[in-house]
């Protein structure tokens, strides 16, 4: 098994998603509030996993643009729910590379007097290992 195949299997394991159920309706991308910012769109994540192109997914800036709003998860008519693949790719990247998108050093200057702790814990959980 090549590294790419192993990673594809891992993504399917972590997410619990069967990408072959996708019927390519595109509803996930149509409903995603971040799609315009994403280099790989939610519906394309499914195809990338099928083709085993995982390296591209773990380097995609879509991982940081996903809002975990669960719109694609709620509205997927085939229970493929690409948000779960995006999150699995993000976890794979964080587990391999430690999740360098957000560093502790830069946090203080991002805060203002109203910043809720909810924002900090959520961003930490999403962006870091």
């Amino acid at each position: 098994m090549t590294k790419a195949e192993k990673q594809a299997e891992l993504i399917r394991d972590i997410s619990g998603v069967d990408p072959y159920k996708c019927m390519k309706c595109g509803k996930c991308t149509a409903t995603c509030p971040s799609y315009a910012e994403m280099d790989i769109k939610p519906h394309q994540f499914v195809s990338f996993v099928i083709r085993g192109e995982i390296e591209a997914l773990t380097k995609s800036r879509s991982l940081e643009k996903c809002l975990s709003c669960f719109a694609c998860i709620e509205r997927c008519p085939r229970s493929v729910e690409p948000g779960r693949l995006i999150d699995a790719a993000r976890q794979l990247a964080a587990r391999e590379r430690g999740g360098g998108f957000l560093t502790t050093e830069e946090v203080p200057e991002m805060c203002d007097p109203d910043t809720p702790s909810q924002l900090l814990v959520s961003a930490y959980r999403r962006y870091r290992r």
Binding site: E37, L67, L120, S122
Partner: peptide, 19 residues
């Protein structure tokens, strides 16, 4: 019932402000 931008407002304020 659409997203307010959530946690991206920490690092990507433009994106969350748009939403």
């Amino acid at each position: 019932n659409e997203c307010c931008g959530g946690y991206v407002s920490l690092k990507d304020r433009e994106l969350s402000r748009g939403m």
